[in-house]
Computed example of a mutant assay.
Amino acid sequence: MELTQATVNDLLDRLGPGTGHLYLPADLDPQALTDLLDGRYGAPRTLVLDGFTDPTADESRDAALLAPFEGRAVTIRAWAYGDRWIGTGTARDAAGIVRPVLVAAGREVPEPLAAAPGEDVDWVRRLIRITGWTDPAGRPAMDWAKTEASLGTGLPSDYKRMVETFGEGAFDGFLDLNQEPWADLREDGLLIWAGTEHEDLYCWRADGGDPDRWPVVVRSFDGKDLAFDCRAAEFVCRILVDPHHPYTLARYFDAHWFMTYGGNGS
C-alpha cells in the first residue's frame, strides 16, 4: 500500500465518523503512517510503547483507543483532533500476528461554565478542560527570570502557565502560542504572546506595574487594534467556546485541542 495523505483520508473515511479500527496490511510501514499523521495533527502522545500502556491514560479520554485491541496493543501513538481521538501503531491480531493499525474514538470535551460575577476563575485549568489536554507539562523548566530580564519587565502569570503546560504548538491548530513574547511592537507599547496564520497578533498593552492586569490587544493584519479587558488565558478560552466573540473559533470547531509542534508526548 502506497502511503500518501490521500491514502490517510481514505483510511479515516473507512473508520467512519465515530469509533472504529482497522488492521492494515503487514507490509505497511507503521512509522510512515505515524509521520503522515504527525504532519497533519502535530506531535503525538505515546499511549502504548512495547506493550506497556502509559499509566496516565484515562479511560474516559484517549485510552478509549485501546478498547478494540483488548490488551494486544504493542505501540500506539495518539492525537486529539476536534471531536475525535486518532491513534496508529501496531497491535496483535486474533492470530497473534503484529500488524499496523489505525483507530479512532469519539472525544467529548466539556466546555467551561460561565463565570459568576466576582468569581476568581482559573482560566488555565479551564483551558486544559476545553482542549482535553492530557500530555505532561510541555515546558516546565522555562527560565522566566532570564526572559523577563531580557525584556525588562515581568510577564503575566497565566501566560507563563500556558507555556509551561502546553509548550510549543497551536490551539485548534490555528492560534500559535509564542514560547517567549515578541517585542516587535514594543514601540507601540505592545508585547506579542500569540498569533494566527491570518496574521492577527495577540498582544498585551504592556503598561502599568502589574503584568497580571495587562489587557489583551489584537493587532489585526491591517494594523487596527481591538482591546479586551481580560487576561491571555481567559481570551483563549473565550475565542474557543464563544461563537459571538469577534475572533471566535467556535463557529468552525465543535471540540477543541492543542496541536503540539514539539515532542512533548512522544
Rank of each mutant, 00 (worst) to 15 (best):
R72W: 02
V74H: 04
V74P: 02
V74C: 04
T75A: 00
R77K: 14
R77S: 06
W79R: 09
G82R: 02
D83L: 01
D83Y: 01
R84C: 10
I86P: 15
G87D: 02
G87A: 02
T88F: 05
T88M: 03
A91I: 09
A95W: 08
G96K: 00
I97Y: 02
R99M: 10
V101P: 07
L102V: 06
L102E: 10
G106D: 07
G106Y: 01
G106Q: 06
R107D: 03
R107A: 08
R107L: 03
E108W: 02
V109N: 07
V109D: 03
P110R: 15
E111G: 06
E111H: 11
P112L: 04
A114D: 15
A116Y: 09
D120F: 00
D120N: 08
D122M: 10
D122F: 12
W123S: 04
V124Y: 13
L127D: 09
R129N: 12
R129W: 13
R129Q: 11
I130H: 13
G132Y: 05
G132C: 10
W133R: 12
T134L: 14
A137V: 05
A137G: 01
G138W: 08
G138Q: 05
R139Y: 00
R139L: 03
R139A: 01
P140Q: 06
A141Q: 03
A141Y: 01
M142I: 15
